[in-house]
């Protein structure tokens, strides 16, 4: 079976105030060497046993384009892994 691991994050240049707040917190804890923080969302999509790798890839792309990401402000990336049933 195929499993897609999807990461959605803000495009470069889009304000990510949560990441900024986390970076400030890290900095106040003494981790000044952390220069940049990016936040994102992680999703796992598990496909049924009849779905081959190519279909899994297409379905993941469609899911990302239509729902998981907003193309105005976000990018996504994913990788497919083969898992045991």
């Amino acid at each position: 079976m195929w499993l897609a691991e999807v990461i959605v994050n803000y495009k470069i240049g889009i304000l990510d105030p949560e990441a900024k707040a986390i970076q400030n917190a890290l900095s106040s804890m003494g981790y000044e060497d952390v220069e940049q923080v990016v936040t994102g969302k992680y999703f796992q999509l598990t496909f049924g046993p009849k779905v081959n790798k190519e279909t899994a890839e297409n379905l993941t792309k469609e899911s990302c384009d239509k729902l998981l990401s907003n193309p105005v402000i976000q990018d996504y990336s994913f990788q497919l892994k083969e898992v045991k049933e």
């Binding site: 889009i14 304000l15 105030p17 949560e18 707040a21 907003n70 105005v72 402000i73």
Partner: peptide, 17 residues
């Protein structure tokens, strides 16, 4: 409306969180 593409752009988290 912006998510449904009836209006352009996006509404993101307030800049002060």
């Amino acid at each position: 409306l912006v998510e449904a593409d009836l209006l352009p752009g996006a509404l993101i988290t307030n800049n002060h969180l």
